[in-house]
């Protein structure tokens, strides 16, 4: 496919505006379903935490707070980069946007690597239910729930980050090839929306997983 005409649109639509509205609405709909996906895990977390507050606090103390804090910073920065990239595309910029998109992806990858280190540590400490769980002590049983949910939630989240990284790289590539312009930037907008969602989910994960047991 060669460079699309600025005002090209798919045959089922009447005009580019309609296409854009549809795409954005579709993305929002998708994000709503995403919220519900994570919602189940958060609901499970809420119920278990309410039933076993101590075990959950204890479990939370096993997580790596500094690491989690840095990861949070990394993700926030990446979201910022994504937003700037979108703005740049909308203003007709090209080079900066490509770099910002790559930066977003790189920050996402950094996040994944850091989380990978955390997982390895947890494996070594024997905190992985089903694979290697060697905890002992009064709260070990209930703490297993905490880690079970921890891996479910962060695992699902990491999959989302991974998808986002790929998405951002694709956007960077397409931008470098000049596919986007001030009148046509829907894909970047959608990718950025998705990325913000991934970020927001983490904003919930961080306090629930890392902070909850450290308050008192």
């Amino acid at each position: 496919m060669s460079t699309p005409q600025p005002l090209a649109h798919a045959p089922q639509f009447d005009d580019p505006t309609q296409q854009r509205t549809a795409a954005v609405l579709g993305m929002w709909a998708f994000l709503v379903t995403e919220v519900l996906f994570f919602g189940v895990l958060f609901a499970g977390y809420a119920v278990c935490r309410w039933r076993f507050p101590d075990a959950f606090a204890a479990g939370s103390r096993h997580t790596d707070l500094p690491m989690g804090a840095i990861e949070t910073g990394v993700l926030l920065a990446s979201s910022c980069a994504a937003a700037l990239a979108l703005r740049d595309v909308q203003l007709g910029g090209r080079r900066a946007a490509t770099r910002l998109l790559v930066l977003t992806a790189a920050l996402g990858a950094t996040f994944l690597v850091m989380h990978g280190f955390e997982y390895t540590d947890e494996y070594r400490e024997g905190l992985v239910p089903g694979l290697r769980y060697t905890q002992d002590g009064p709260l070990a049983g209930k703490m297993e729930f905490f880690f079970y949910l921890y891996f479910a939630i962060t695992g699902l989240h990491s999959v989302h980050v991974l998808v986002g990284v790929v998405l951002m790289l694709v956007m960077a590539l397409r931008n470098a090839r000049g596919r986007f312009r001030a009148t046509y930037f829907t894909p970047v907008e959608l990718a950025a929306l998705y990325w913000h969602l991934v970020d927001i989910v983490w904003i919930f994960v961080f306090p629930l997983v890392y902070l909850v047991g450290r308050a008192g």
Binding site: C48, P129, G130, L131, Y133, E144, F145, Y148, L149
Partner: peptide, 8 residues
């Protein structure tokens, strides 16, 4: 839960 043999 089936895979891990443990769960909520």
């Amino acid at each position: 839960e089936r895979l891990a043999g443990v769960g909520i």
